[in-house]
Write a protein that binds this DNA or RNA. Structure first.
Length: 459
RNA sequence: GCUCCCUUCGUCUAGUGGUUAGGACAUCGCCCUCUCACGGCGGUAACACGGGUUCGACCCCCGUAGGGAGCGCCA
């Protein structure tokens, strides 16, 4: 059996988005599962829209996701000589021809066909031309005019198309550059791709590509067409739905393993299992188990998956990434508790690392005192806070246990329920009403910061 | 308009002719509790519709409706 070779072939006209990432993941998984090769190919034949920044953005995103490739990245713009060679061959063999039709004629044709409620397609005008024409021309592929093209899609089953539905597509533009459908075919052929896994927006391109592959005498790869990913409103995914760029998820504090896990599960499943390590995915992934229908992207569930990984991953690993987010926020973490401790204290109460960073800044930098905070420190409470201040100041050991003991005993001595004391202290210590358990919070804050802030509240 | 694809709780999905239609997220309630969470327990909630086939259809077939994609000298 020939070794499996899959490829991910984005066009560099923007960042890597969620849908592309999932396609890449599935290609990657299948290659790894079968001990095959995963190839990255940049489809940059559209010189107008392709940019170097986009290429870099895609590479960066693949890197962040950890989707490494065994071969590539290959660039189509570097393979023009090869395409020209194949086009020449096709022309020579009469499997392609020069078409001198003007864009105006083509446009007119399209309008007429639409008016007749027909599917617009090239009428083969130059295919049958007997006289020698001159001027600018494009090269069209001689598509079969009858019969059918059929293939077994690994996800949808047998798909059948009538050749009469297809037309003689352009494979080389008037400036000589090759077009997408042609490059894909030559590349997949040259790179010996065995499994073409791509979005189902390519289903309609497949019969055309198969016809070219046949004209070239190439073996056909297996095809698997993935359903689309929809926005949370069921409409097509777009900027309106918030983050669609993979790197934006990094910026917002998601872990790559969480995004990957969520994406894997969006459109694919293995029974009722929700959480998969990468190794498990490699082991359990089957193209056959991919769903046929489009799936809506659900940000809430991604959040849940992300928190799951926040809670279960190695705290030091998480702390490393948290450091990056702290830096993004401009928080200097040199003075304060270790980030690993912060992770341990916060991971059960936040869903993203960005949120964790935002909610942990008071451990490292001064808090703002607002008048709203003041109302919590009533005249009756201030003596109690003072008592706590003294107790904490006299504590022999600054531990969670001793701190808890101090707070509890002061509350009891003052006839207050723990909450009645804890909450004002929390506000005094953190500037807000939400934090990890008070003993943990004060412990991490350290004696000096705690006493300073308590003092400020009593004043 | 034409061609192709899709259709199970709000969302992601399990299901492959006989199930009280299962799980997860979200949501609601209760418990835990110094806040927020986490966790535990429980609840609401789905087979788009209409015909067949069959003793029996979520499951098979055919329509209808709805959604999506393609029909470029874009990819």
């Amino acid at each position: 059996m020939t070794p499996v070779r899959t490829r991910f072939a984005p066009s560099p006209t923007g960042y890597l988005h969620i849908g592309g990432a999932r396609t890449a993941l599935y290609c990657w998984l299948y290659a790894h599962k079968t001990q095959g090769k995963f190839i990255l190919r940049i489809e940059d034949t559209d010189m107008e829209r392709s940019t170097q920044e986009s290429i870099q953005a895609i590479l960066d995103a693949m890197d962040w996701l950890g989707l490494g490739y065994e071969e590539g990245p290959f660039y189509q713009t570097k393979r023009f000589a090869r395409y020209a060679e194949v086009i020449e061959q096709l022309l020579h063999e009469g499997k392609a021809y020069r078409c001198y039709c003007s864009k105006e004629r083509l446009e007119q044709l399209r309008i007429e066909q639409m008016a007749k409620k027909e599917k617009p397609r090239y009428d083969g005008h130059c295919r049958n031309a007997t006289i020698v024409q001159t001027g600018t021309y494009v090269v069209r592929f001689n598509n079969p005019t009858q019969g059918i093209v059929e293939f077994d899609d690994l996800i949808r089953g047998r798909l059948v198309f009538a050749n009469t539905e297809l037309d003689d597509l352009i494979i080389a533009r008037s400036d000589g550059t090759p077009t997408y459908n042609f490059c894909v075919v030559v590349d997949d052929w040259d790179m010996q791709i065995t499994h073409v896994i791509r979005g189902d927006d390519h289903i309609n391109n497949t019969p055309r590509q198969i016809n070219i592959l046949r004209a070239l005498g190439a073996n056909l790869p297996c095809y698997a067409h993935l359903p689309m990913i929809l926005g949370s409103d069921g409409k097509r995914l777009s900027k309106r739905h918030g983050a669609v760029s993979v790197m934006q998820y990094r910026d917002e504090g998601y872990l790559p393993e969480a995004l990957l896990n969520y994406l894997a599960r969006l459109g694919w499943s293995h029974g009722d299992q929700e959480i998969f390590s990468l190794d498990e995915l490699i082991q359990l992934f089957e193209i056959h188990d991919i769903n046929r229908s489009a799936a809506a992207f659900n940000p809430e569930k991604l959040l849940w998956v992300n928190q799951h990984y926040l809670k279960t991953s190695d705290p030091e690993y998480i702390a490393n990434i948290l450091a990056w987010h702290m830096r993004q926020l401009g928080v200097d973490i040199r003075q304060g508790p270790s980030l690993t401790e912060i992770v341990l204290a916060q991971r059960e109460r936040v869903k993203t690392l960005q949120e964790m960073a935002e909610r942990s800044s008071y451990f490292y930098q001064d808090i703002e005192y607002t008048s709203e905070m003041g109302v919590h420190f009533t005249a009756e409470l201030k003596p109690v806070l003072a008592k706590l201040y003294n107790k904490l100041e006299d504590l022999l050991d600054w531990t969670k246990e001793s701190i808890h003991q101090a707070v509890a005993s002061v509350a009891e001595e003052s006839g207050l329920k723990l909450g009645k004391l804890a909450q004002p202290v929390r506000i005094a210590a953190t500037g807000g009403t939400v934090s990890p358990p008070l003993d943990v919070t004060l412990f991490l804050l350290g004696r000096e910061r705690t006493l300073n802030r308590l003092h400020r509240a009593i004043r």
